[in-house]
């Protein structure tokens, strides 16, 4: 369970990233955070694994206030919170396999990892994760030989290998085309359902949020302006969140083209 209690974050330059956020996310939920760019979605997500540090309030993950974590404690928090990035953040020159194994770093001693001494279980897990996102055959390809969608699937496999309790995804489909975007979202959704991993995704596409989320949190100027199940959301809700009427660029489209049936 993740609890935000009166959480605020002011950046050193004075910009207010989060303003008195109060949100509770239950285990197993699939939450999509929507809002315009600069609304604080990314700050919200990055607070949970402390890539940014909130300046006031409380943030509890499994009832521990994570704001005072340092060093080892912080790393063990990050070990149980996996993250997926907009630009995949793979080591391009490394093989897919090595990239996926990097998900085990938090579970592996420094010495063993520097000399590449991963145990058999780790390797099997990495391969298993790759097969779950249907990219097992690319295991020995270099990451930069893959398409964007494939690279994002590798980064999902990396997170799976980490065996996290929570998955954060920061605009995971912003660099992808519509069909690939849906494919990636379907994998995230499938993992959420099969493994019961709590998943929090940032999106700015309304249609995708509606299609995949259980619950939607709307943000504007660092504040939570909407929080409720998808069933309560209408176009009007989005207009309130965005503070303007809905435009074409807010839609990803391409939902009906069901490109891959293995999802």
């Amino acid at each position: 369970m993740i609890e935000f209690k009166d959480l605020s974050l002011v950046y050193p330059n004075g910009h207010q990233g989060l303003k008195d956020v109060n949100v509770t996310i239950e285990d197993g939920e699939f939450v999509v955070i929507v809002g315009l760019s600069g609304a604080g979605k990314s700050t919200f997500i990055r607070s949970i694994n402390r890539l940014v540090t909130p300046t006031a309030g409380e943030l509890r993950v499994d009832s521990d206030n994570i704001l005072d974590y340092k060093g080892r404690g912080l790393r063990s928090l990050r070990t149980k919170v996996g993250m997926i990035f907009q630009s995949y953040n793979l080591v391009k020159r490394n093989s897919v396999f090595k990239n996926v194994l990097a998900g085990r770093l938090g579970h592996t001693g420094t010495f063993r990892s520097v000399f590449n001494l991963f145990n058999k279980d780790d390797k099997a897990l990495a391969y298993e994760s790759l097969k779950r996102v249907n990219i097992g055959e690319k295991i020995y390809n270099r990451a930069d030989e893959l398409s964007g969608g494939q690279q994002q699937r590798v980064s999902i496999a990396r997170v799976l290998t980490q065996k996290p309790k929570y998955i954060l995804a920061d605009e995971p489909v912003a660099s992808l085309d519509p069909p690939t975007s849906h494919q990636v979202m379907k994998y995230l959704r499938k993992i959420n359902k099969e493994d019961g991993i709590t998943t929090i995704v940032n999106l700015h596409f309304i249609d995708m949020a509606m299609e995949y989320a259980d619950r939607i949190i709307g943000m504007r100027d660092g504040e939570v302006v909407f929080d409720g199940p998808v069933s309560e959301v209408s176009e009007k809700t989005f207009e309130e969140i965005y503070g303007r009427s809905i435009r074409e660029e807010d839609m990803r489209g391409g939902a009906e083209e069901d490109v891959e049936s293995h999802a």
Partner: peptide, 11 residues
Amino acid sequence: MSQQLPPKKPR
């Protein structure tokens, strides 16, 4: 799910 090691890298 069964533990399956990845195929050996073709060398």
